[in-house]
């Protein structure tokens, strides 16, 4: 598979915000029909990385290639136009807008001609409701309902359904399963597998080893903005992956620390503060 041209490739990409260097020398490739799992601790730079791939940020140095050709994404719209659909970690839905309108923000279906294009509410509602119902959210029947009345997971499902609908070549999901129930999370994993079968390239960010191991073909671990490990499925054990995701510390050490704490504090776990 790796002999094919990657759909998206980053070559020595750096990203800084003023004096803050967030990404260093990132080189990654993602091929059609392949799932790249991006792993790493909080603040490692995962969201920043996918934002440079979806046109939100421009790399400070280095280049991005699409189908082997260097590209510069001028805006999120530009990246979308090239078939890259992203579900960002936060936001993505608008509570005071209807389900149908939410689904099509920025890509509204229209009818009519010339300057008299009309937002096609019926098509928007039908498509959106169908897409979320396929996600197992069968409680939703009315595309005119406001999204603010949905649960967090239902809203997340809406955002993912939207990306799947528009993602022609690359699907980027930033912690898509974080807010989801067991059934919906399983469905997202199924969707990822389906997208992969259809030949899409998928970039999937998660903190859950199980989810990563279920769908990932290729794993990249970020530690403090640099690629600390880049390996394929089967090359590392679950324990090794877990350790890498914890930012290089071994889970066994972390567990030992917690146990040590509990012994000295009469069975209480450490308080997060």
């Amino acid at each position: 598979m790796s002999d094919k041209t990657p759909v998206l490739e980053m070559r020595s990409v750096d990203k800084s915000f003023g004096p803050i260097d967030v990404l260093h020398e990132i080189s990654l490739r993602v091929h059609p029909g392949e799932v790249l799992c991006l792993l790493g601790d909080n603040g490692a730079g995962k969201s920043t990385l996918i934002k440079t791939l979806s046109g939100v940020h421009k790399p400070t140095r280095g280049e991005i290639l699409m189908d082997g050709e260097p590209v510069v994404f001028e805006s999120p719209r530009d990246a979308q136009g090239r078939g890259i659909a992203t579900v960002h970690q936060f936001g993505g839905t608008y509570p005071l807008m209807s389900i149908g309108r939410n689904f099509f923000v920025g890509a509204e279906p229209t009818k009519g001609w010339g300057p008299f294009k009309v937002f096609d509410r019926k098509t928007a509602n039908e498509t959106a409701v169908k897409a979320v119902r396929e996600f197992g959210i069968t409680r939703i029947e009315d595309g005119d309902r406001l999204v603010g009345g949905l649960s967090g997971g239902e809203r997340q499902s809406l955002a993912i359904a939207r990306a799947v609908h528009f993602g022609a070549r690359v699907l980027i999901l930033d912690e898509p399963t974080a807010a989801l129930g067991v059934k919906q999370a399983a469905h997202v994993l199924r969707i990822v597998n389906e997208a992969k079968k259809r030949g899409l390239a998928v970039i999937f960010i998660t903190h859950q080893v199980m989810h990563a191991m279920t769908v990932g073909d290729h794993f990249a671990v970020l530690i403090r903005g640099a690629v600390a490990a880049d390996f394929r499925k089967g090359e590392k054990t679950r324990e090794e992956i877990t350790d890498l995701m914890a930012g290089g510390e071994t889970m066994a050490d972390l567990e030992a620390q917690i146990e040590g704490y509990m012994e000295t504090h009469e069975g209480h776990v450490p308080q997060a503060n």
């Binding site: 839905t93 309108r101 923000v105 920025g106 937002f119």
Partner: peptide, 25 residues
């Protein structure tokens, strides 16, 4: 309420950053 631009106006007011990420100018 009729043209697609209306959707952009609501989205920008609802969540400016998401609207930008969704490709709205």
């Amino acid at each position: 309420h009729v043209s697609p631009i209306g959707n952009w106006i609501f989205a920008v007011g609802g969540d400016r950053e998401s609207a930008h990420n969704a490709g709205i100018p």
